[in-house]
Design a binder for these strands. Structure first.
Ligand code: FES
Ligand code: FES
Lengths: 143, 143
DNA sequence: TCTTTTTTATGATATTTATCATATTCTAGG
DNA sequence: CCTAGAATATGATAAATATCATAAAAAAGA
């Protein structure tokens, strides 16, 4: 459903959501240490996120990664699209060219509605929504 | 969500559900040709299915694969468990040790209920149920 | 301007998954 | 029994993912 890389991306972004701010930047090494994401792999994931303005970064001393106001308003689906592309989530479980209700594969009805709803949720939920959940103790970021 | 191997397994079993019977056995080559599953890969997938009595087989001239009455009553989840093991489907999206509502990860509520329902559906649906759907034109097996 | 700190970029290795190829065993029929 | 047709078992290769390592670029401070 989600690639390992997407999981890491989401974890890293959420970690930044909780622990960073414009004033308090965070080193990739800290993210790596705290989330158990391999350091170099994490770097490779943060790059496209940075390029696409999902996270903010400055280099040099005192630099690091952080989430700006705008970053926090990004819908989760954007993160997944950047890392996994936009086909993985919506593709047919049995690899029909297209997943739609007019020409459904045998599994479509077993999952269809639920998959669509998940995608909708990813579109309608932002990073700050999840950060709020975590900070309110409604959910827990795996560390 | 489902591995490629599971997709192939389901496709192959459904193909047999439609095209085989105790009297009309089907060669693995035919399955491979019709479903575009690579021949040797398919063989490797059919073996554990045969061992676990998901499909029936006889070797030698006139032999092949087919689905018995009992095979048709197998719930879909069994096929997936044999191929993917029983963790892949139920594991946490963000790789918490366990996915449960008491200690949910930030994504849990975006998908949780729906994932549980999908698994329930896989447990409650048998091969013959899906075959009936296909034969009634309610769904389509990718060929 | 030099050094240090950090991200960014690129390439190499390892692991997993998918695919291919070949040898072995079983079974029916002559 | 002998042969041929089939599944079964095992091992080898290829491709995709995940991981590691290193070099380059930018920014800050002395
Ligand atoms: S058509 Fe296969 S999951 Fe929708
Ligand atoms: S706890 Fe992560 S999906 Fe349920």
């Amino acid at each position: 459903m989600l690639s390992n890389s997407s999981k890491y991306a989401l974890k890293a972004v959420l970690y930044l959501g909780i622990n960073s701010s414009e004033e308090k930047k965070v080193l990739s090494k800290e993210i790596s240490d705290r989330t158990n994401i391999p350091k170099a792999y994490l770097s490779k994931i943060l790059q496209p996120l940075s390029r696409h303005h999902i996270v903010s970064s400055v280099r040099g001393p005192g630099g690091g990664f952080y989430l700006s106001k705008e970053n926090r308003a990004v819908p989760l689906i954007d993160i997944i699209h950047i890392i996994d592309g936009d086909h993985r989530l919506t593709s047919c479980l049995l690899s029909l060219k297209e997943c739609n209700a007019e020409h459904p594969c045998p599994l479509h009805d077993l999952v269809g509605d639920t998959k669509v709803r998940f995608v909708k949720n990813l579109e309608g939920t932002t990073v700050e929504d999840l950060v709020a959940d975590i900070e309110a103790g409604r959910s827990f970021l795996p560390l």
